[in-house]
């Protein structure tokens, strides 16, 4: 290939990149369909970058109270980063996150630790402490934050373990459990302080379809019993269809569209339609 031609090629490539940048947010209508309830968590124009890598780019999102909300989006669009912002593990470069009317980035440490007690978080692989058995893992938040006696603690722990179907596994160590069991145990630990908000970081990652369905059912059951705002992060459409009451579609660090689940599944936005149908044809490519 001659030098001239190479330069010409480079030029067209640059041009196409510039074009893309102009169009980048053309599917992002940012429409927030009304849900009829108050928001438990609000993101207001949040920007976050790691080095040169911009993850969140002006995210505006609301998570409604007392519903199971899902944040859906292709991999690498900043879903887990969202969760970390909600509990103050990461701070936004710009913008604000409001939980029950209070701004998270403005809190000082003691307030933050207090606020976090309202949260239960289920991490991707459960994040159980490797040095403790299941009972101690689930009892850990109770022992640290409440003055309950040992008997009462054990009663609560056993009840929570029974709820997630791990009645007889209390004295096992985390590395003796399968991935699904670790997740359920992490779920029990997240619930043990009766949190108002429960966050799930990809509850379906690494599970087979049947186990995923069972876990989704479990989430629904426990939500019916306890209430509270549940936030599930996933890219799995099957579980979204099963449990979601509210859906926010996230792409390139912004909301494409959000609203009650039924309405989103019938959306006329091309990106939302493609993603929720799992179609290979549409705005989302391999890139």
């Amino acid at each position: 290939m001659s030098e001239d031609k190479m330069q010409a090629d480079d030029a067209t490539r640059v041009a196409s990149v510039v074009d893309d940048r102009d169009d980048e947010f053309k599917w992002h209508t940012g429409k927030q369909l009304p849900t009829g309830v108050q928001d438990a968590i609000e993101f207001v124009d949040v920007h976050k970058a790691f080095g040169r890598n911009k993850i969140l780019r002006g995210l505006n999102m609301g998570i409604p109270e007392d519903k199971i909300s899902m944040i859906l989006g292709p991999s690498g669009t900043g879903k887990s980063v969202c969760i970390k912002h909600m509990v103050g593990l990461l701070y936004p470069d710009q913008g604000d996150i409001i939980v029950h009317g209070k701004s998270v980035p403005m809190m000082h440490d003691d307030e933050l630790f207090d606020m976090r007690k309202k949260f239960g978080v289920l991490f991707q692989d459960g994040a159980l402490f490797g040095s403790m058995n299941l009972l101690d893992n689930v009892a850990f938040p109770l022992r640290q934050h409440t003055d309950k006696g040992e008997e009462e603690v054990m009663e609560i722990v056993n009840r929570r373990l029974a709820e997630v179907g791990l009645t007889n596994a209390g004295d096992k160590m985390p590395n003796e459990l399968s991935g699904g069991m670790r997740k359920r145990a992490g779920f029990a630990r997240a619930l043990v302080l009766d949190p108002d908000i429960v966050l799930f970081d990809e509850p379906d990652s690494g599970l087979d379809p049947v186990r995923t369905a069972l876990l989704c059912e479990l989430i629904q059951e426990i939500h019916e019993e306890n209430g509270g705002a549940y936030v599930v992060i996933t890219h799995d459409i099957m579980s979204a269809r099963r449990v979601a009451e509210h859906i926010s579609v996230l792409w390139k660090g912004r909301i494409v569209e959000s609203g009650p689940a039924e309405q989103l599944f019938n959306s006329d936005n091309a990106f939302v339609r493609q993603f929720l149908a799992g179609d290979s044809q549409g705005p989302l490519g391999m890139e």
Binding site: R116, F119, P141
Partner: peptide
């Protein structure tokens, strides 16, 4: 390090423990 990458440190933090 292994606690960090398996999210155990984040789990401690969100349980309100320094």
């Amino acid at each position: 390090g292994s606690m960090r990458i398996s999210d155990e440190i984040d789990a401690l933090e969100v349980m309100g423990i320094d």
